[in-house]
């Protein structure tokens, strides 16, 4: 299990990185945290001729909390974001989800933006980006553009990023005041990819539910948002859990794999959602 040869590029600016990307075309591959990519290379499931290692690019390691979003640079490691108190205060869902990402040693190196660019339906972060209606900031030879989450995830492992584009940051949207969020997942072992997971945001005004929305892990091809506002009812004291579970079951389309059947995952994600709703409303 050793990678095939590649040319290592170590740009120090975004402009240089984009220039390399342009030059090597589809033969290049961005290397950020590498926690997903390097095993793929070692197993020789992929042998790109060029790796554009952005770890030396200045300015990509910042977390900024803004009025409407938390902006996370492409070199922010999961651990850094997980431990950032201002990011937690602004958007608790980030930490709620990030604690489920693999194990600390992986989180110390893996990047949040890389995780999104990987667009694995079993990843936690894509569902968070979807639920927060976040935006991916991409830079390429044709300039910069913002890609909203709804357009970013195209298929399993497939994003709207072009081969010569670099995701330099993402902006996770912040929720309105009165929003409670939570994240729940069930994996076979701690730190494994979840059999099913759910990110949930419920906005309350007094005791009235103004909105309830969810996105999912491992049970949909691409992370999308399910609006549960209708199903859950208005009164926080008596949420319609059966209707919520029904809506979730109808929304998801889990596949069977070696760890669980599709039917089981469908049941599981409905139950996780039901429990998470109860937990959020009883806080």
């Amino acid at each position: 299990m050793k990678p095939a040869p590649f040319v290592h590029h170590a740009p120090t600016t975004v402009a240089e990185a984009v220039e390399v990307l342009r030059a090597v075309g589809s033969h290049g591959k961005i290397l950020a945290g590498g926690q997903s990519l390097i095993p793929i290379l070692s197993m020789r499931l992929a042998s790109p001729e060029h790796l554009i290692d952005i770890n030396g690019v200045a300015g990509l390691d910042r977390i900024e909390v803004r009025d409407d979003c938390v902006r996370v640079g492409a070199l922010v490691r999961h651990t850094q974001l997980l431990q950032d108190e201002s990011a937690y205060a602004a958007l608790p869902l980030l930490r709620q989800a990030l604690v489920h990402v693999a194990h600390p040693a992986i989180r110390n190196r893996g990047t949040t933006v890389g995780s999104l660019a990987h667009a694995d339906a079993a990843g936690e972060l894509p569902s968070v980006l979807a639920l927060t209606e976040g935006v991916v900031e991409a830079v390429g030879p044709r300039g910069s553009r913002d890609i909203p989450a709804s357009a970013f995830f195209v298929g399993p492992l497939e994003t709207a990023l072009a081969a010569d584009e670099l995701a330099v940051a993402v902006r996770f949207g912040r929720f309105p005041e009165g929003t409670r969020t939570g994240f729940a997942e069930s994996a076979r072992r701690s730190g494994d990819y979840a059999l099913a997971g759910v990110a949930l945001a419920i906005t309350l005004q007094d005791k009235v539910i103004r909105s309830a929305r969810a996105s999912f892990v491992s049970v949909t091809d691409v992370p999308d948002v399910l609006d549960l506002s209708g199903a859950i009812g208005s009164y926080a004291a008596v949420p319609d859990l059966d209707a919520v579970a029904d809506a979730v079951r109808a929304h998801v389309s889990p596949d069977t794999d070696i760890h669980a059947t599709g039917d089981y995952r469908r049941m599981l994600v409905a139950e996780l959602t039901r429990r998470l709703v109860t937990e959020l409303l009883s806080r």
Binding site: H8, P104, I106, N108, R109
Partner: peptide
């Protein structure tokens, strides 16, 4: 802590 099998020497 990081995995040394998931980094390159360079």
């Amino acid at each position: 802590p990081m995995r040394s099998c998931l980094m390159f020497a360079v």
